[in-house]
Structures are given as structure tokens and as C-alpha cells.
Design a binder for these strands. Structure first.
Lengths: 125, 125
DNA sequence: GCCATATGTGACCATATGGTCACATGTATG
DNA sequence: CATACATGTGACCATATGGTCACATATGGC
């Protein structure tokens, strides 16, 4: 049930959410999310913040929408992009928290490897 | 000072960490981190868990190492891969926490837009 | 209706990426 | 030392991705 898998909810308007990690991988898209975190913005507004063309920004926006990180509201001839924080929260809960849980231990064990070669067996002369 | 890469510390051993988001983007690599979270593993051990060839897994491992998500310890003829939780923690602290901070408000405002189906007008024939 | 504005679509290109393989290196052990 | 095992390297290929553009489609105001 927690998995919105391939074929369960195949409603026309929501084909299937794509991997939010993929969407997050691009720094431009992360900047877009950052701008959207401040307030919702039209596509044109967003374009003003980047060096690339309007089309490139729109493509990034499309990726974010497919990952459900951005929700679109049509208002007249404008398109207003809203941040949807849910996928990020899901990532935190299903991915990052578990890593944090067991990290203190590993961190300590790691320091040994990071600083010294940790030779198990004495080298033969 | 003569040009030496991108300024800061271009030491031979540490070229510069690549974007951890990029490394996290691939599901195989996330699975590797998941396995490494349980315990450290050799490359061969990791390969056993995936359908692809050993080389593919090694490439993924290389990406993870460049992003400093994995630390390598050489032990004899084996290579032992350790998880390094620090980059993940950095992502959480510098990226995800700020989003969580302002999300409750946005969530409420979003609900209105999420429930409206956004019907597209029929195309002209 | 007409036109300017704002956004959408498809084609197109260069490069990055995931994946494969043949072959090279290193190391433990008989 | 020889050989098998574990890992490393480079070339190579197919596809995905980021980016561009020309052109098409709404929408609001006149």
C-alpha cells in the first residue's frame, strides 16, 4: 500500500510519480525548489533567476512535477508553481532517518580507516 | 600561484568530492548504501546482491567513493567498503531541514490545488 | 476580432551516464 | 614460483539527460 507502484494508480492526470531522487540530482532543480520554498512563483518569474533559456527551466519544472515535488496551479494564462514538501518528507522518513539511526556507531569505526591504514597483519620482511 | 584545479585543496589524494546528490540519484547506489549501512562489505560481496556485472557495481562504488559516501579500506587482496554517513547528514542539515521548517504552512495551502483535477481543455480537431 | 503576453510541444544536438567486455594488476597460498 | 582469486583499467556502446530552437497554443485587454 505505501508503494505507489507501477500500475496501481494509473489515473490519467497522474501517470506515475518518478523518482524524486532523480529530480533532486540536478542543482538547478534544487535551486528552483529553494525559490519555491520562499513563495509560489510563475514560470516566467522562475526563468528570471537562471542563465538558461525559458525552455530549459520549463523542462526542469516538468521533471519536478513528475516527481511531485512541484504542483501546478493554472491561473488564467499564468502557471503558478507550488512546492510540495511531501516527497522530501518521505525521503527523510524512509531513507535518511534510518541512516542517522546507525551512524554514530559507524562514524567512530570509520575514523580509524580514515586516519590510519589499519593493518591487520604485520608485513613480512 | 599557478592554476591548480579549482582553487582550494587540489591535493592528489582528494581531487574534490563530487555532488552527493548525483550519487544518490541512482537506485542501485542507494541499495549499495543500504547494504553498507548494515555492515561493511567487500566489493565481491556487494556484487552478489545485484543482477548486473561486477564492473557495473564497481563503477557505482567509484561514484559513491567520489561523493565520499563510501570509504575504502584495503585489506590484503580484498577491498572493504564502508559507509560514510557524513555527506548524508550534511544534506539533511543544509537542505532537508529548512524545507521541513516551512512545510506545514505550505502543505495546507497546497491541499486546495492538489484536489483539483486540472482538467485540460479538449483539443481542437 | 486582434494582438501582445505567457506558456506548451516537438525536434534536435552534445554530453553524461549506466552498462558491457577484454585485459591488466595484485595477492594469498599450495 | 605458479596459479587461482579479488580487484582495477580502459575502451566501447546505448540510452538518458540538459540544453537549444522554431513553432503552436492559450488568455487578457483593446
Amino acid at each position: 500500500m505505501p508503494e505507489h507502484g507501477t500500475g496501481k494508480n494509473a489515473r490519467p492526470g497522474h501517470p506515475r510519480p518518478s523518482d524524486p531522487w532523480k529530480a533532486l540530482a540536478d542543482p538547478t532543480r534544487r535551486s528552483i525548489l529553494d525559490l519555491l520554498r520562499q513563495r509560489e512563483r510563475t514560470t516566467g518569474d522562475l526563468c528570471g533567476h537562471f542563465d538558461m533559456t525559458r525552455f530549459a527551466v520549463m523542462k526542469h519544472l516538468a521533471v519536478l512535477v513528475e516527481a511531485e515535488l512541484v504542483v501546478v496551479e493554472r491561473r488564467g494564462r499564468e502557471r503558478i508553481n507550488h512546492l510540495n514538501p511531501l516527497p522530501l518528507q518521505r525521503i527523510v522518513q524512509r531513507w535518511i532517518r534510518p541512516f542517522e539511526a546507525s551512524s554514530a556507531d559507524k562514524l567512530l569505526r570509520l575514523e580509524g580507516h580514515l586516519s590510519k591504514p589499519q593493518i591487520k597483519k604485520a608485513k613480512k620482511p
